Amino acid sequence: MRTKSFNEVIADYLKQRAAEDTLFAPKFTNPKKSIDECCRYILGEARKRGNEVVMTDNEVFGLAIHYYEEENIKVNARIGNSVKSRVVSSKQVPEAQTTKQLSIQYERPVFSTVKRGRGKREESKLQLSLFD
């Protein structure tokens, strides 16, 4: 059985919502909005909360609805392109551990920096992540 992607889960929810809610339907069909941008918006909002974020399904779907209801939403273009993220749904977690939450984890890029001081050049060591 194939697992649905994050974008597919959001799209399915919003399509169902548009079918049931006549006030939301015209906002969902706005040509200036897209599912991909909506998902980038959700990931960007989660990223603002920290490196490893756990959100309830209602919070995630609420952000998706907010994206479509607001005309002037700023979406971080970097999210989804250069930042690696992993989304885990409560539907992918064993039943005993399920709490109806969505976990979004980010992999931070690690940069090597050069420190300069009084003629010395030192390279800092790469920082290891506890989450790898």
Rank of each mutant, 00 (worst) to 15 (best):
residue 8 E to G: 04
residue 38 C to H: 05
residue 119 G to S: 08
residue 124 S to T: 03
residue 7 N to K: 11
residue 6 F to G: 06
residue 129 S to C: 03
residue 88 V to W: 00
residue 63 L to D: 09
residue 10 I to H: 04
residue 108 R to A: 14
residue 25 A to M: 11
residue 4 K to T: 02
residue 91 K to L: 14
residue 56 T to W: 08
residue 30 N to R: 09
residue 36 D to I: 10
residue 76 N to Y: 09
residue 89 S to G: 06
residue 56 T to L: 12
residue 39 C to N: 04
residue 59 E to W: 04
residue 57 D to G: 09
residue 106 Y to I: 06
residue 102 L to Q: 03
residue 96 A to H: 07
residue 46 A to G: 06
residue 10 I to K: 02
residue 48 K to Q: 15
residue 21 D to T: 06
residue 95 E to P: 00
residue 40 R to Q: 14
residue 78 R to V: 15
residue 86 R to V: 11
residue 124 S to F: 00
residue 94 P to Y: 09
residue 88 V to D: 01
residue 125 K to E: 08
residue 38 C to E: 05
residue 123 E to I: 05
residue 54 V to N: 03
residue 12 D to M: 12
residue 40 R to P: 02
residue 112 S to P: 00
residue 50 G to R: 06
residue 69 E to A: 10
residue 72 N to Q: 15
residue 105 Q to I: 07
residue 99 T to S: 05
residue 94 P to N: 08
residue 129 S to D: 07
residue 46 A to H: 01
residue 13 Y to E: 05
residue 82 S to G: 14
residue 81 N to I: 13
residue 30 N to V: 10
residue 71 E to C: 09
residue 52 E to I: 07
residue 110 V to I: 15
residue 60 V to A: 12
residue 41 Y to I: 05
residue 49 R to A: 10
residue 41 Y to D: 08
residue 51 N to Y: 06
residue 79 I to C: 09
residue 75 V to C: 14
residue 4 K to D: 04
residue 8 E to M: 06
residue 22 T to C: 13
residue 4 K to Q: 07
residue 106 Y to N: 02
residue 65 I to N: 11
residue 37 E to L: 13
residue 105 Q to S: 10
residue 99 T to Q: 06
residue 27 K to V: 12
residue 21 D to G: 10
residue 117 G to M: 06
residue 80 G to T: 00
residue 107 E to S: 07
residue 122 E to Q: 10
residue 77 A to H: 06
residue 120 K to A: 07
residue 76 N to W: 08
residue 65 I to T: 15
residue 128 L to H: 00
residue 61 F to K: 12
residue 26 P to H: 09
residue 58 N to T: 14
residue 42 I to K: 00
residue 99 T to D: 12
residue 122 E to S: 13
residue 6 F to R: 01
residue 112 S to N: 02
residue 59 E to K: 04
residue 93 V to N: 01
residue 128 L to K: 02
residue 72 N to G: 06
residue 8 E to S: 12
residue 114 V to C: 04
residue 73 I to D: 03
residue 55 M to H: 04
residue 9 V to S: 06
residue 73 I to R: 03
residue 7 N to C: 12
residue 86 R to K: 13
residue 26 P to N: 09
residue 59 E to S: 11
residue 49 R to F: 03
residue 7 N to M: 13
residue 34 S to I: 05
residue 66 H to S: 13
residue 129 S to A: 09
residue 44 G to N: 07
residue 77 A to R: 10
residue 60 V to D: 03
residue 43 L to T: 00
residue 76 N to D: 15
residue 13 Y to L: 07
residue 69 E to P: 00
residue 36 D to W: 06
residue 113 T to V: 09
residue 128 L to P: 00
residue 55 M to Y: 04
residue 118 R to D: 12
